[in-house]
Amino acid sequence: MSDVKPMRADARRNYERLLVEARRAFAERGVDASLEDVARSAGVGIGTLYRHFPTRDDLIEALLRDRFDTQAAKARELLAAEDPLDALYAWLVGFGATSSSYRGLTELLADAIDDPRSRLHASCEEMQTAASHLVDRAQKAGVLRADLTVRELLLLLHGASWGGTHLPGDGGTERLLSLVFTGLRASEQRGQRGGARAG
């Protein structure tokens, strides 16, 4: 039986308002947006914000939790896909969209991989675990470089996500990721078109 008490109605309303305003602020100004401004826009004091979200990472984790859960579930689903390279690429595109949701988020996630103190570290480990099964399957099938590690793959993804924000128009992250993915194919697969949309 859980010892966690349900939130009072007014606390729940404050919590939801803070998430709405944080989502808007981060979308407009990036993850470094003022938390004081977020609290003010939500109609609460900064103390109320910190009671719900003790750190900025706690707030970001709350905003992205559904997306992380979706990505973990998608990885499990893609393990049954016919083409293991296409499956890995599809998962990376989805996670790339998550990691580039807000300006500055890519750098936070890249740092959190190596920082157990970060509230985002557990989510990064969860994504590494999800990716590892897809990577292992593609490597065993001989279609992905055998020397590639999951950590390297996620850092390459973060790089593509960051770079994609500096290209004009939409789809920058996917464009860069498709270019990177060509070099991740097993040597005998390079130069062949089709699969993973990279060629």
Rank of each mutant, 00 (worst) to 15 (best):
L63D: 01
L18W: 06
G104A: 09
G47D: 13
G43H: 06
Q192S: 11
R56I: 06
L156Y: 12
R23A: 15
R76A: 15
E16C: 03
T55A: 09
Y102I: 03
R12M: 03
G47P: 02
E82C: 01
V38G: 03
A42G: 07
G142A: 05
A42W: 05
D37S: 14
R119W: 00
A9P: 11
L144H: 03
M127I: 07
A160H: 09
R51F: 12
C124L: 01
L156S: 10
Y50L: 05
L120I: 10
E152Q: 14
A42V: 04
E82T: 13
A39R: 06
R13Q: 15
E16N: 12
A122W: 00
M127D: 01
G172V: 01
T182S: 12
L177C: 06
G195Y: 11
R145G: 10
E174H: 12
A160G: 08
T106A: 09
T48Y: 09
V31Q: 04
L79M: 15
H158Q: 05
A72K: 07
G142V: 05
V20D: 15
E61P: 00
R151G: 11
T48I: 08
G199S: 15
S41G: 07
V135P: 03
R67A: 13
S161R: 02
A138S: 11
D115T: 02
L64V: 06
L108S: 08
G172W: 06
D86Y: 10
R119G: 06
R23F: 03
V20T: 14
E174D: 15
D111W: 00
F68G: 00
G169A: 07
H158A: 10
L134A: 09
S100N: 11
A11C: 06
P116A: 04
L85P: 01
I60T: 07
L179S: 11
F181W: 10
L79W: 12
G142E: 07
D115S: 04
R151F: 02
G159T: 05
L179G: 10
S100G: 12
Y102P: 00
R17C: 04
L134G: 10
T48F: 09
E61A: 10
M127Q: 15
A81I: 08
A110Q: 09
D32R: 06
P168D: 13
G47S: 14
P168W: 07
E107R: 00
E126M: 10
P84G: 12
L18I: 08
T55K: 08
G45F: 01
V93H: 04
R185Q: 13
V20I: 14
L64I: 08
G159A: 09
N14Y: 03
L63I: 04
E126N: 04
M7R: 12
F26Y: 15
Y50S: 01
A131I: 03
D10Q: 14
V93F: 06
Q128T: 13
G164C: 09
E125L: 10
Q128N: 13
S187R: 08
L59I: 03
G199R: 11
R23E: 14
S2F: 04
H133Y: 12
K140R: 14
W91Q: 09
Y50D: 01
